[in-house]
Amino acid sequence: MSAPHVSSTVAVRPRSAILSGLALVWEKLSHEPVGLIGFVFLGLLILVAALAPAIAPFDPAAQNLQAAFLPPSWAHLAGTDEFGRDILSRLIYGARITISTILSVTLIVGPIGLIIGVVSGFVGGRTDAILMRFTDIVLSFPSLILALAFAAALGAGLGTAIVAISLTSWPAIARLARAEALIVRNTDYVAAARLYGASPLRLLFLYIAPMCIPSVVVRLTLNMAGIILTAASLGFLGLGAQPPAPEWGAMISSGRKFMLDHWWVAVMPGIAILLTSLAFNLVGDTLRDLLDPRHARA
C-alpha cells in the first residue's frame, strides 16, 4: 500500500459512498411498488409546480365571465370557476403554493425539532426538563386555533399560515428526536467516543443526530400530509393564501357555494389535495420501511 494509492482512495471515497447509498435506496425502492407510485407522483407534482408557466394552458388569474362555470371539457379539462378562470391552470399554479408551504414548514420544523430533541435527550437533567415542559406547552396548542390568533394579530396570509403551522408542529419532532437520543447516548460507541475525548458538540452532531435523522425524516414526510390539510383548512377559512392566489383550500371554499350546480369547482381542488396528501403518506410509509430497521418488512 503505497502512499499515492492511499490518497487516491481517499479522494474518491465520499462520492462513491453517496453513489452506493443511492443505489441501495433504489434497489430497496424497487421492491415497494406502492411507495414508488407515491414517489413518482410527488416527483411529477414538483415538476408541474416548477414548470407551471409552461404547462398551464391558461393564465390562472385571467377572468372571462362569459366562460364561467363551464363543465370539464377538452378546452378546460377541469372546467372553469365562477369568474371563468381555468381550474386546471389554477390547480397547476396552486401546486407551487402547496409545495412551497410544505417546504417552508419542513425546513423550519425539521431542524428546530431535531436540535431541541437531541439536545434535550443528550444533555438530560434540568435542560431536558425545561425543554420538554416547554415542548409540552406548545404541544397543547391546536394549530388551527393558533393560526386564527396569528391571523388576527398579523393579518391573514400564506406567511402567517406557515408560521402558525410551524409553531405547532415541531414538538412532535422534538419528542421523537429526544426518544432516539436517549437510547443512543447510552450506547457503547458513544462511551468509546467519550473515551477518546470527543467533545459534546461532536457527540451531538456526528454521533447522536445521525441516528435520529431517519425517524425524523419519516415523521416529517408523514407530517407533510397533515400540513397540506392544515394549510388547506386555513385557506378554506380565509386565513391562508388570499385571493386571487390559487390555493387549493381557498378554491374549495369558494367552490362550496356552487357545489350543487357546478360540482367540479369544489371537487377538482379536493381531488388534488386528496392525491397529494395520499402520496406524501405513501412516501412517508415507504421511507419508514427503508430507513428505520425496526419497521423493516420481511
Binding site: D188, A191, A192, L195
Partner: peptide
C-alpha cells in the same frame, strides 16, 4: 482506551 463487550454495539 477500552474494548467493550458487545462488538455489535461498540461501533457507530
Amino acid at each position: 482506551q477500552m474494548v467493550f463487550q458487545d462488538p455489535y454495539g461498540s461501533l457507530h
